[in-house]
Simulated assay, not measured.
Amino acid sequence: MSLARYRQVVIFCPTGVTGGPEAIHQLSHALNAIGVRCSLVHIGPTNTVRVAGGKLIAMEPPHPGVLQAYAEYAPQVPAEIPVDANTLLIFPEGLAWLQHRFVGCGVAVWWLSIDNFFRALGADDDEDADVVLRRVLGRADLIHLHQSVYARDWLRERGVEQLYDLADYTSTAFTAAPARSPSPSPAISYNGAKGSDLAADFFAANPQFDALPLRGYSRGELRAIFRARRIYVDFGHFPGKDRLPREAAVSGSVVFIHRHASGDCYDDFPLPDLFKFTREDALSGALASRLAAAQADPARHWAAQETFRDRVLWEKTQFYDQARRHWGVAPPTSPSNPAR
Results as ranks from 00 to 15, higher is better:
residue 2 S to I: 15
residue 9 V to S: 07
residue 9 V to K: 08
residue 10 V to F: 01
residue 26 Q to C: 02
residue 30 A to V: 08
residue 31 L to K: 12
residue 33 A to G: 10
residue 34 I to V: 14
residue 38 C to S: 03
residue 39 S to D: 12
residue 45 P to H: 07
residue 47 N to K: 14
residue 48 T to P: 03
residue 49 V to N: 09
residue 52 A to P: 05
residue 57 I to P: 14
residue 58 A to H: 09
residue 64 P to M: 02
residue 64 P to F: 01
residue 66 V to Q: 05
residue 79 A to W: 05
residue 80 E to V: 09
residue 95 L to P: 11
residue 102 F to D: 05
residue 104 G to S: 11
residue 107 V to Y: 08
residue 109 V to P: 01
residue 111 W to G: 05
residue 111 W to Q: 06
residue 115 D to L: 12
residue 122 G to E: 06
residue 122 G to P: 11
residue 132 V to P: 08
residue 135 R to I: 13
residue 136 V to R: 11
residue 137 L to K: 04
residue 141 D to C: 10
residue 142 L to I: 00
residue 143 I to R: 06
residue 145 L to N: 08
residue 148 S to Y: 05
residue 152 R to V: 05
residue 155 L to Y: 01
residue 176 A to N: 08
residue 186 P to F: 02
residue 189 S to A: 12
residue 190 Y to R: 09
residue 190 Y to W: 12
residue 193 A to P: 07
residue 195 G to N: 14
residue 198 L to T: 00
residue 200 A to L: 08
residue 215 R to E: 15
residue 217 Y to A: 04
residue 237 H to T: 14
residue 238 F to W: 07
residue 238 F to R: 06
residue 244 L to F: 03
residue 248 A to C: 06
residue 249 A to D: 08
residue 250 V to Y: 00
residue 254 V to I: 15
residue 258 H to D: 12
residue 259 R to Q: 13
residue 259 R to A: 13
residue 262 S to G: 02
residue 264 D to K: 14
residue 265 C to V: 10
residue 270 P to H: 02
residue 280 E to W: 00
residue 282 A to W: 02
residue 286 A to Y: 04
residue 294 A to E: 03
residue 298 P to G: 06
residue 300 R to E: 02
residue 302 W to Y: 15
residue 318 Q to P: 05
residue 319 F to I: 13
residue 322 Q to K: 08
residue 323 A to Y: 06
residue 327 W to H: 01
residue 333 T to L: 10
residue 333 T to Q: 09
residue 334 S to D: 03
residue 336 S to K: 03
residue 338 P to H: 00
residue 338 P to Q: 02
